[in-house]
Design a binder for these strands. Structure first.
Lengths: 232, 232
DNA sequence: CGCATACTTGACGTCATTCAAACCGTGTGG
DNA sequence: CCACACGGTTTGAATGACGTCAAGTATGCG
């Protein structure tokens, strides 16, 4: 399948946006678009020729599975995000679609060559890697000391921010991109605890549940307080 | 203070090792060496003109402090490691010396310019960022589902690996680089739990405590088993 | 309609935290 | 030299938050 950068929804925000049109088309010639349905994996831990990809639309999770078969979600990837380990000999984690997702995939050698030819691309990927690092550390902070309620409140707050179109405003209605089990795997909690605390957040008047996945933000300030993070 | 790259112990492993001698000297002209004593901070969260640095010797911690004043250690930095956020407008975390440490510091604008002039440097920093990301995610895996004993066993195992000279062998005698409190802050445990589990690991015959900081590895395989990680 | 999947709710057990006190090595001053 | 204070550590007992086990309730799909 050929790439259609001209109509790409993330052409101004993805890593490739730092390239000029000519450079971008050259890179695009090496890439392929790919659609993943929910649950389909881009690659699994241990794959030795894993591709790299920019997410065009949808959402991905990066996760590890421990020896008892418990999944641990390490990161969520939103459109314009980049996944793939450029230097490791094999993939360390699984990457799976959370919803139907459109990706722009590249063989690693092609990305490797591209960052040598286009220094700006290396810089853009460096920036993204540092942002991913910050996100991972944010999750560490969250799961480190906070109790279950604060973890859940913070996660819902983040989802509300991610679901919003404007960067400094929260969406008041949105769907959780994760199942209860996935939320639990991400926050180090069980499915039951997530469900219970969700109920408590609703009783407290911070949110309202609309069906299984839907959330309505009733009191964003309260949610922020319960999350234990500073209000601005 | 002038840099003496010729005698630098990490000149072959740090990010700057990808530069040729001439390039390296040019970069060195912009840098300054700095010594930090234990407890001294390189920069604090919120600093808006934080430097970047390569660690030459010693050890650093990267940590965040939540609103109740609890510290959370997010990462440890070993010699040849690089710290500093190149793109964020201000530092998100504290960076503090764990032992007397020697650093090679650079103003951010100088690093910024260097990665434009020397693409190989951008590539090297990208590689390091991805490794840091992997380390952060490893810590997430550890603190996500494992119980206190497994977390501690895994951390001690990692320290034994880091203290060893050869990469695939464990040191049998070494000192913990962290206090009990710092270990707790890193693993999301209290000081008392760390102390108790340390005693249990000793009773189980996995390790022996030699004074406050010293550890002797009695049964590395047992330690590995208790950590819940696969044996190779 | 019936089964599957996800979610909710309750009762109970367990592990880590909390609070409290004692311990140890080190440095300081009388 | 000893008394003392101090930081880091160890240990004990009681509490509580989350996990486990087990039903029970939607929601959706063949």
């Amino acid at each position: 399948m050929k790439l259609a950068c001209e109509t790409c929804p993330v052409r101004d925000s993805a890593a490739c946006s730092v390239l000029n049109e000519e450079e971008r088309d050259a890179l695009a010639a090496a890439g392929r678009t790919r659609i993943l349905e929910r649950g389909e994996m881009l690659f699994a831990a241990g794959d030795d020729h894993a591709a790299c990809a920019t997410l065009v639309s949808g959402a991905l999770k990066v996760s590890a599975v421990d020896k008892d078969g418990n999944e641990q979600i390490l990161s969520l990837v939103h459109p314009s995000g980049f996944v793939g380990e450029l230097f490791a000999p094999f993939a360390h984690h699984d990457v799976t679609a959370l919803t139907q997702s459109k990706l722009c995939t590249f063989a690693r050698v092609d990305i490797d060559r591209a960052i040598e030819v286009y220094p700006a691309l290396a810089r853009a990927l460096l920036r993204r890697a540092q942002e991913d690092l910050l996100a991972a550390r944010g999750l560490l902070e969250l799961t480190g000391h906070a109790d279950a309620e604060a973890r859940l409140a913070a996660l819902i707050h983040d989802f509300a921010a991610a679901a919003s179109t404007s960067p400094c405003h929260l969406a008041s209605h949105f769907d959780l991109p994760l199942t209860r089990g996935e939320i639990g795997n991400m926050l180090g909690l069980t499915i039951e605890t997530v469900s219970r605390k969700m109920g408590e957040l609703e009783d407290a008047g911070a949110i309202a549940r609309k069906g299984k996945r839907g959330i309505e933000l009733i009191d964003p300030a309260l949610l922020q307080t319960l999350s234990g993070r500073q209000a601005y």
